[in-house]
Nucleic acid binder design. Structure first.
Lengths: 161, 161
DNA sequence: TCTGAAAATGAGGCGGC
DNA sequence: GCCGCCTCATTTTCAGA
């Protein structure tokens, strides 16, 4: 009954390998962890059921698909009521160019990661959408000059180019 | 010879589907785009060769694997020479907890995304590694209270929970 | 470039240890 | 909880239009 699942070393190694290559065959994983395919299969099912793996995905190259400009925008709200916070988050989520939105401690309230084609497109986004968000008191935007590191793998530090 | 590859609508749809599910079978993709399996296979090979797909990966749940705390740290350097910038980037890349590092326009120089177990672990990281980076003049850190949106898919806005 | 089909490889299920 | 075998699904290659 009360048997909380805790991944062992083999489970963590499976996660590490799948972070490196989400399509690695079970056979290859099995060789790495010195087991047969069957336990890989059952462990993987368990890891997914327990929510260790959010999803499998293909990471694309934003430059190639017209999203070459990345902006980080700091937002300060006028009012910090629950309603105001929730409204802002709801609006931000709906904007496709906003890839990430975090509520933060510190000098400002929210940090947005925005990816978009170019500065002209950003200008349009700013005029048509961002500047119309009613909860916002101040916004300050910085643009990414270069990406020194971008890594989604917790168990394996790898800088994708 | 000079025949630059430009993805057509079918290619973009394949990318969109693989962003949603990096393990979607070619057969299922084929049904979505009303083609047979063979062209899916060859188009996918081309998209990978041309660098449209960076890689396939499993996105993990950071809370489950002891990386429940996320920090965004703004860094200002003392000196802005090429050497100083490059040294800082090299050092930042080497720190496993630094998942992303960007050189930015604006009021500060770099933005770091740091994921780590908890505040005690952050304290240790700060004392042992971050505060020893010689190029740094100022650092200001904000911690993530909540993640309103986290999306890696450019063609399909989806907020992962 | 596509369709259709064959060959090779991988995934998922079952009994036994 | 693991192994080996079996069956089914998927991937990859190939002939032809």
């Amino acid at each position: 009954m009360n048997n909380p699942f805790r991944p062992d070393k083999t489970d963590l190694e499976i996660l590490r390998l799948l972070e490196q290559d989400g399509r690695m065959p079970h056979k290859v994983i099995a060789q790495h962890v010195h087991k047969s395919i069957t336990p890989i299969h059952s462990r993987l099912a368990k890891l997914q059921n327990e929510g260790y793996i959010r999803r499998f995905t293909a990471l694309l190259n934003p430059r190639k698909i017209g999203r070459g400009l990345t902006a980080y925008t700091q937002v300060i709200l006028k009012v910090h009521s629950q309603e105001s916070l929730e409204n802002f988050m709801k609006q931000a989520e709906k904007i496709n160019e906003v890839m990430e939105c975090y509520h933060l401690t510190g000098a400002f309230d929210f940090l947005l990661r925005i990816t978009i084609r170019d500065m002209d497109a950003y200008n349009e986004l700013l005029l048509k959408k961002l500047s119309n968000l009613p909860e916002v008191a101040q916004m300050q935007t910085s643009f990414v000059i270069s990406e020194a590191k971008y890594n989604t793998a917790y168990f394996y530090s790898r800088s994708d180019e």
